[in-house]
């Protein structure tokens, strides 16, 4: 998902009886559905794991602006341009809500930024793919934001209060994102042959990477088991991927597009679709930093940070000067 393959303590989940009293009380609060707040006691593993997860999620929102930002100046109409601009601006907001939530865990915003820029922290694999045509704006909103929603809706109930509250705000805004994408796909699906072709091509390229967003099967992952016990992960990766496929296939049919998977078939017995796994070798390769656009994305973020340095410094200097003048006047 926006946070993929987040590592936890690496140890198996402790039973309540194996825990020290403080940790046991903490786990019992989580089991009872209580929210954990910044000043509450929490196990070090919980805190670290959440910083990694929320940080990765925040970075994904920020880096996620780049593939769509790529098309703002080339949107086909002024209305589409204004809508895309608003959507991308929302993603900046999502990044900010999440950075704030991460900061309540004792990491600074600047530390998080540095870890993204020097590659110590990751962002979602999906944003390492290029957006080649306008139809990709449709596919990204429909599929990528659609997949994100699958994961984010249950996270509104996550155990860490600031994270859950950030998720509530984000979810309110995400359905606009998905709908504007689907709207682009509908227009192109009803358009000329060339437009239909572009829409199909966008679906072909984004289908696999969208399925990868949920991460590889984690049925046997100790990290996921721990995260689920802490309620910072609410569903297994396969469960969410299945839900996404079941929701998306009929939408593709409505658009008159073909999901690029010859094994896709409705399975009456399980009440869901059977489908092919995406190319996991490709996924791991992207995570290792070899995505088609990884270098460009990292360069763009580093450039933005470096080029903005004089603005940040200037504003701080201005604030200091104003404060000094105010003190002098008193």
């Amino acid at each position: 998902m926006y946070a993929q393959m987040v590592k936890s303590t690496g140890k198996g989940v402790k039973s309540l009886d194996e825990m020290e009293p403080q940790e046991r009380a903490f786990q019992e609060r989580i089991n009872a559905g209580d929210k954990i707040e910044p000043k509450d006691w929490m196990p070090e593993g919980y805190r670290k794991n959440l910083i990694r997860q929320i940080g990765q999620h925040a970075h994904s929102e920020i880096v996620g602006q780049l593939p769509e930002g790529n098309w703002i100046t080339r949107a086909p109409t002024l209305e589409r341009k204004a809508i895309l601009l608003a959507k991308v601006q929302d993603e900046a907001g999502h990044g900010l809500y999440l950075y704030c939530a991460a900061e309540t865990l004792g990491v600074t915003r600047d530390e998080l930024t540095e870890m993204l820029l020097d590659g110590r922290m990751k962002y979602s694999s999906i944003f390492n793919y290029p957006t080649l045509t306008w139809a990709d704006m449709g596919a990204v909103g429909w599929l990528v934001d659609g997949a994100a929603i699958m994961n984010q809706v249950p996270l509104q109930r996550t155990s860490y209060g600031p994270y859950a509250r950030a998720m509530v705000r984000i979810c309110k805004e995400e359905s606009f994102h998905q709908r504007q994408g689907f709207d682009i796909m509908m227009t192109m699906g009803k358009g000329t042959d060339a437009q239909k072709h572009m829409a199909q091509d966008a679906l072909n390229r984004f289908w696999g990477p969208s399925l990868m967003m949920f991460g590889p099967s984690d049925e046997n992952s100790v990290h996921s088991a721990q995260s689920m016990a802490w309620k910072i992960k609410m569903n297994s990766n396969d469960e969410l991927r299945q839900k996404f496929v079941d929701q998306t296939v009929p939408q593709a049919e409505y658009l008159g597009l073909t999901v690029p998977d010859e094994n896709l078939k409705w399975n009456e017995e399980k009440g869901g679709y059977d489908f092919s796994q995406p190319d996991w070798d490709e996924f791991f390769d992207v995570l290792r930093g070899n995505g088609p656009e990884t270098t460009e994305r990292m360069e763009a973020r580093n450039k933005a940070w470096d080029d903005g340095a004089w603005v940040r410094d200037g504003m701080m200097a201005h604030a200091a000067k104003k404060k000094a003048m105010k003190v002098a006047a008193e």
């Binding site: 929302d90 809500y97 805004e173 604030a319 104003k322 404060k323």
Partner: peptide, 23 residues
């Protein structure tokens, strides 16, 4: 509603407008 970073109060309010009142 949340928090944000800004160099001074004036910018904090301007940033809050963009971050927390887009709708």
């Amino acid at each position: 509603v949340g928090s944000l970073h800004a160099p001074d109060a004036e910018m904090a309010i301007k940033n809050a407008r963009d971050v927390y009142t887009r709708r």
